[in-house]
């Protein structure tokens, strides 16, 4: 059953601990679609920087062609140049992409997101995923009933 708590991002109550009733009420309202409009699905500012760990773990690759350029400074790569590769396989000069990821967490080319060290943003992403799942579940239910 530990999996259930993990999946929901919750934890079991400790000995003698009271549940947070306000939190329960909020979750209840969200789960029953009462607050759909309040969850706009948009992070209101620039998403936070990529996590230090994710940035450190970006693999370094050696460029083997002359035809590509770095999408940030637009300078051509030369054969043998070192480049950092994002999980989406887009390649950049190390200084270019590191400067960008200190500002925000996504690929400048395709917006593929790296994890961040920002608790609030990670919670938002989890909630957004759950909202999408709820919508999908509702659609499935609706289709199975009416088609």
């Amino acid at each position: 059953m530990a999996g259930y708590f993990e999946e929901m991002g919750w934890r079991e109550l400790q000995e003698g601990e009271q549940p947070n009733h306000l939190l329960h009420m909020a979750r209840f309202l969200i789960d029953f679609g009462m607050y759909e409009d309040n969850f706009s699905g948009e992070w209101p500012r620039l998403p936070p920087p990529a996590s230090k760990e994710a940035v450190q773990n970006l693999p370094e690759v050696t460029i083997d062609s002359e035809s590509k350029n770095c999408p940030i400074c637009l300078k051509s790569f030369h054969s043998g140049d070192k480049a950092k590769e994002m999980p989406c396989h887009h390649q950049f000069h190390p200084t270019c992409i590191l400067t960008w990821l200190e500002r925000t967490n996504s690929c400048p080319f395709c917006r593929h997101e790296l994890p961040t060290d920002h608790e609030g943003y990670e919670a938002f992403k989890k909630e957004k995923k759950r909202a999408e799942q709820r919508k999908e579940d509702l659609d499935t239910l609706h289709n199975s009933m009416f088609s």
Partner: peptide, 9 residues
């Protein structure tokens, strides 16, 4: 604004 990406020109 907040959706700027460095690869835009």
């Amino acid at each position: 604004k907040d959706q700027w990406a460095a690869a835009l020109t």
